[in-house]
């Protein structure tokens, strides 16, 4: 191997420069090796058009959320009762106005912040809880494993939305409680995934070697098991985010998520529901936004799975 790559004429070609450094098969340091792995993953990902489309949509979403005050043509909360229920493409209102004369485009733009907020918080809470429960259960085994996994099964025994509904009913409606309720219902699959990964890693030789060196369970789990669970968790999280968006929008639609007048997309669809037959755009536009964003997450998730976890590729 070594001599092969040394003889490789590409390495002597100065034009390759940084790209050559990224594509080498003889990395010189750990950092270098990591960069090479990342770059080859990126190349594979980039060749997947649909996944790139998803990524671009999500980058746009982040930019829109960040620059909402500059992008939105109107104040999302400003009412104009004289100009209510104007159809799309009317003057100054690209997507029309709702029943209080608020500009729908501006509300969708500001609503992206709420969506991102919910998605980010759930993506931070649920996988971490699942990782913790799953790796501890898998590594400890025995009674700890049985208890934790039974607990996981109990949470899996409810349909997600129904359990989230019951939790929000108990905690009170609102965006933070919606995040909490969704996280409570979202962690069990991560726990099962992390446990399965842990079980395959636990008995490997290198873990035995580390244990002989005197590493305790804490260190083994956090330093040697977690890093190996991460990539499959990331794929799962990305694929699940579409579901999270749909659940959050469902809660908002039922009036249990973000409260009016905040421009949450699900709540906006609910507002437009009353006028659906006469003023179709009020409910249609925010619904399209939900659809596009969750589609983007699904596309991105599929692409990431192909790169990180080729064994599941369908």
């Amino acid at each position: 191997m070594m001599s092969d790559s040394l003889d490789d004429p590409r390495l002597d070609d100065p034009r390759l420069g940084f790209r050559g450094w990224l594509l080498t098969d003889t990395p010189t340091s750990r950092f270098h090796a990591r960069c090479v792995a990342l770059y080859s993953g990126w190349l594979k990902f980039r060749s997947n058009t649909m996944a790139m489309l998803g990524l671009i949509i999500l980058i746009l979403l982040v930019l829109i959320a960040a620059f909402a005050p500059w992008l939105a043509p109107h104040d999302p909360l400003a009412q104009d009762l004289a100009g209510r229920l104007k159809p799309p493409l009317s003057e100054g209102h690209l997507l029309g106005t709702d029943s209080l004369g608020r500009d729908i485009l501006s509300r969708i733009i500001y609503g992206s912040r709420i969506t991102l907020y919910i998605v980010t918080l759930v993506a931070l809470i649920a996988p971490v809880v699942g990782l913790l429960v799953g790796t501890v259960a898998g590594y400890a085994g025995g009674i700890v494993d049985a208890v934790l996994m039974r607990l996981t099964d109990i949470f899996l025994a409810f349909p997600r939305l129904v359990l989230a509904l019951a939790f929000v009913a108990a905690l009170g409606a609102g965006i933070e409680n919606a995040v909490l309720a969704i996280s409570i219902t979202a962690w069990p699959p991560y726990a099962r995934l992390a446990r399965a990964e842990t079980l395959t890693i636990r008995n490997s030789d290198y873990i035995a070697a580390i244990r002989l060196q005197g590493a305790g369970p804490m260190r083994i789990i956090t330093r040697h098991i977690w890093p190996l669970c991460i990539s499959s968790l990331i794929v799962r999280v990305t694929l699940d985010m579409a579901g999270v968006i749909l659940t959050a929008a469902g809660l908002g639609f039922l009036g249990l998520g973000a409260q009016p007048p905040s421009p949450e997309w699900g709540a906006m669809v609910a507002e437009g529901r009353r006028f659906i037959l006469d003023h179709w755009w009020v409910a249609t536009m925010p619904g399209l936004a939900i659809f596009i964003v969750s589609l983007a997450f699904n596309l991105l998730g599929d692409g990431l799975r192909d790169v990180l976890d080729p064994k599941d590729a369908g």
């Binding site: 749909l246 529901r273 619904g287 939900i290 659809f291 589609l295």
Partner: peptide
């Protein structure tokens, strides 16, 4: 990807 309540509407 599609919210079921929206598809229903």
């Amino acid at each position: 990807s599609m919210p079921i309540f929206w598809l229903g509407l």
